Computed example of a mutant assay.
Amino acid sequence: MIFVLSRGRLRVLVDSPWFTKVITAVILVNAITLGAETSPELMASFGDALHLIDRVALAVFVVELALRFGAYGRSFFRDPWNWFDTVVVAITLLPAASGSFSVLRALRVLRVLRLVSVVPSMRRVVSALLTALPGMASITALLALVLYVSAVIATKLFSTVAPEYFGDLGDSLFTLFQVMTGEAWSEVARQVMQEKPFAWVFFVGYLAVTTFTVLNLFIAVAVSAMQNQMSEEHAEHDREEMAATMEILAEVRKLRADVEELRGRASV
């Protein structure tokens, strides 16, 4: 019974708003100190203090995970975000080594990513993006197909005019990927158009298909996933409110029945 009560109190503690705010503040402070450690001037003046803050932040994260595990027990690992937090903290707990393993010390910055699991709005965005991955994979395949077909056409048409951009299939793929991002595409097009004036038809059509159509499909899929995520959250909230309302009504009916029973006994 004492264990149940302590677990209940732990749940109240770790789920309280002030506890979340404290962890968020620690994450932000730790992010600032990790950035400050990249400055030789700051390290020369405040190196010991920065290392101390970093160790304190890591200790806070370990204690927080221990409290959450104590509050939820085995159900702690049913939440993917708890797995995420555990892996991030476990990586930063690995001892710093020299040589090829010295990168482990740089991985301490991964602790900043815990902000994603702490802030509900960020967690909602990441969950929506993960939900949208299948649709994005289909769009990526379509984009790769368009890029490949366009690269083959461009190599055949412009390899002799601009060999530095379209000399072979690999060059054409890289150039058209650059054009798709909008980076200096006009320079490439103008150089080709000096020899082939009607080359603008190819470039304008390619940009219309890739940049203005296919790439915007990524945004459409992401927005649709966000809307579905919010709709599910609203539906879950409505179900919880309905369940709470039904529970209150059941208690009211029980009280009314008890009152009627007491009245009957009093009348007798």
Rank of each mutant, 00 (worst) to 15 (best):
G135Y: 05
L93W: 11
R108D: 11
V22I: 14
L262C: 10
H234W: 08
G99F: 06
S121Q: 12
A235P: 07
S39Y: 10
P163C: 12
D48T: 09
N228C: 05
I23W: 01
I27T: 03
S150T: 03
V118I: 15
R9N: 14
L133H: 11
A243V: 10
V12C: 10
Q229P: 10
G8K: 14
A57S: 06
L169P: 00
E187W: 06
G8W: 12
T86W: 03
T245V: 10
S231I: 12
V146N: 08
T245R: 15
R190H: 11
G35F: 07
F76C: 01
W200H: 13
L147C: 00
L67T: 06
M226D: 04
P134H: 01
V62D: 02
T92W: 04
E187A: 15
V252E: 05
L255W: 07
A137T: 06
E232A: 15
R11Q: 14
V149Q: 02
G70N: 03
L217V: 13
G135P: 02
D258I: 00
I2R: 13
A59I: 12
R263F: 08
P120V: 09
T160W: 04
L5W: 12
L249T: 15
T211R: 13
G170N: 05
K156R: 11
L130Q: 06
K156M: 10
V192Y: 00
I23S: 07
L94N: 07
A141V: 09
P40E: 05
T245G: 13
I139T: 13
L143K: 12
E37W: 05
L176A: 01
R105N: 09
D54E: 15
L207D: 07
L129A: 13
R263H: 13
W83E: 08
V192Q: 03
V89P: 01
V209A: 01
L50T: 00
F202I: 01
F212R: 06
P197T: 05
N228T: 14
S75T: 14
F61E: 01
T20A: 02
D258K: 01
A199E: 02
V29M: 12
T245P: 09
V146P: 03
S16N: 12
V88K: 00
T131A: 08
A106V: 14
L143I: 08
A243R: 15
R7T: 00
G264P: 02
L176G: 00
T140M: 13
I23V: 14
V87R: 04
L113W: 11
T33P: 04
V89H: 02
R256I: 05
G99T: 08
L13E: 01
P134M: 05
